[in-house]
Design a protein around this nucleic acid. Structure first.
Lengths: 337, 337
DNA sequence: TGACATTATGACACCGGTGTCAGATTTGGA
DNA sequence: TCCAAATCTGACACCGGTGTCATAATGTCA
């Protein structure tokens, strides 16, 4: 099995390699007869163009990077799934880059990544989607980027999000409609813009239903299961105890559930619990968690698709979409007795 | 900011580009004076060699692929973490390739992957580590590969595993020592070689403790949470009910726990439950699951490191390691009353 | 000191594609 | 029918490195 290069194809088809290249790239100015002849040779020789040579000639790598730092493995894999779908479709490769750095270290780490791997573009996922220094660094270096699930919109960049504020509003209102008035809230990690958005939604739901906001019901978490345990401890010890807890994500909600169960509280009879994200754990525990499902794969796929399109044709105007989040009710929330 | 290429470095340092290349690759036959001079220019110009050009010249991509199909997101991310660690260390890129295909479709999918992405090598993770057709395909195409957590050892290929059979033996013996005699077992997915290994360990522990194996206590699962629910239903309805359940992974164990809780059974007072893998869920639920922890990151990292070393120097003899798995006891198992 | 082995260096082709541009061929309108 | 415009095609340099080989510089030993 010898290598099939553009040269073999060219000589076999009796044309120049430039013409073969034209066919490869669907360029105009090739007669139908020639095009078909070359295409036939592609099949016959089972030719696959070498992306490395292509990359060298065009100064591209056909690789985009995917940056994330998320405690939720399921979120990560969902992001990857969406990104990969877009990459496969458009003949790109995906380089995953988990990264826990912040500040200058983050910037220089990303700079090095771009330098050494020659990325054509980069997808930012939470919490990086809303790091202004990172975004402006990429902008200054003219590295194409797309932002997934960012709260802050800019009109000159690609951004695909879902409405966290609205989701939090809906789930809070769901609790209110069940008769709950003392609804505790556990915040997420301060680095994530979703944290603020979800908190806003919670407060808006309270306000629009005439319930006074009570600061003592709010705990600071960081999206990790562990932080959920700490917050839960404080909340469940409150006197009077709130009748419902809305945690900013499912891991923290699961922690509340665990602690409540350990304390012999029955969920949802004694206390309702709601989460956010619809992580697998939300349906792997008993009772299943009422939560908000976001189209993470879809968001990432659209973002990456846009990004690659933009790389191929920088004229293409960047676009921004907001997708729908959906309330999923399970057994962990019920009407107050 | 203009591009810094090998040519700029060469002319700036007053040497030929071949000499620069020699320094880059740590080749011999460069005088110390010249080497230092060139190295200094690297720093001064902040030069990063272009891996694409390098790849073209050497007919390499500096990319290795990572193949997996696993219902456990945490397992996937652990595999990725290990693989990335090795790749970073050795200046390689990692291309992740989740894949649900089997048989001929799998082979042609992988063939296409290798063709289009020009992988230098591929890491097989369960269940692919033990697919004979895939392994012999790779061998016939002379694609370097490494196998993670495979049960079948071959002495001419790289393989890093941990001892599933022994782990299952230990956890079963743990239950036996707590006084359990009727221990139900839920099998994993038949594609995974671990499934058979874990079952073997379970049986060996029974045998070596003089407990007769009872086929009625064994259920077929497939590692998914859902299959665990089905198996749990059957097992918990048995009369007499077994006093312990050992599920082949934590998701299925969590399913047993969920169902048991729904049935008002107290765990571990009424029934003990054990899992395998030490997935996050094992400590996110109440009671926490007794389970077996495998060094997944470590296994993958070693496998990838070996693989890349082998690619760089095919003389390097492939090696095989077995790492230790560890019993982790939590609240879900207790002495029989 | 001369003859020869060893080390250091550079010229040049090459990896497999793409961009530029000139020349050949076809098309269309007067 | 003829000429300009549009369409097609190929020669050749180039992307940024590495491999080969010739040659220059240095070292070694009689």
């Amino acid at each position: 099995m010898k290598k099939v290069t553009i040269n073999s194809v060219a000589s076999y088809a009796g044309v120049s390699k430039k013409t073969v290249s034209r066919v490869l790239n669907n360029e105009p100015n090739v007669s139908d007869a020639t095009r078909e002849k070359v295409l036939k040779v592609f099949k016959e020789l089972d030719y696959t163009p070498n992306p490395i040579a292509r990359g060298l000639a065009q100064n591209r790598s056909f690789i985009i990077g995917c940056l994330y730092d998320n405690p939720s493995k399921s979120y990560i894999t969902r992001v990857q799934t969406g990104a990969l779908a877009a990459c496969h479709e458009l003949n790109y490769n995906l380089l995953i880059h988990p990264c826990e750095l912040r500040g200058d270290e983050l910037i220089s780490n990303i700079e090095q990544l771009i330098q050494t791997s020659r990325l054509d573009g980069i997808v930012l996922t939470p919490p990086f989607s809303d790091f202004p220094e990172l975004v402006s660094f990429l902008k200054s270096k003219k590295i194409p980027y797309a932002r997934v699930a960012s709260a802050v919109l800019e009109d000159d960049s690609i951004s695909v999000r879902s409405n966290d504020e609205q989701g939090a509003f809906e789930i809070t209102e769901h609790l209110i409609k069940l008769g709950h008035k003392e609804i505790a809230f556990i915040k997420g990690h301060p680095d994530h813009s979703a944290t603020e958005q979800r908190f806003k939604g919670y407060r808006r739901a309270l306000a629009s239903n005439g319930i006074e906001f009570d600061e003592r019901l709010v705990e600071e978490g960081n999206f990790s299961y562990h932080s959920g345990v700490d917050s839960a401890r404080t909340i469940l010890d409150l006197n009077p105890r709130p009748t419902a807890v809305f945690a900013s994500n499912d891991y923290m909600a699961a922690a509340v559930l665990k602690l409540a169960t350990q304390m012999q509280l029955r969920v949802p009879d004694d206390i309702s619990i709601a989460g956010f994200d619809n992580a697998p754990i939300a349906r792997h525990i008993w009772p299943g968690l009422t939560t908000i499902a976001q189209p993470v794969e879809e968001m990432t796929q659209q973002a990456v698709k846009q990004l690659i399109t933009h790389i191929g044709d920088p004229q293409e105007s960047p676009y921004q979409v907001t997708l729908e989040a959906k309330l999923i009710t399970r057994e962990s929330t019920a009407a107050i007795k």
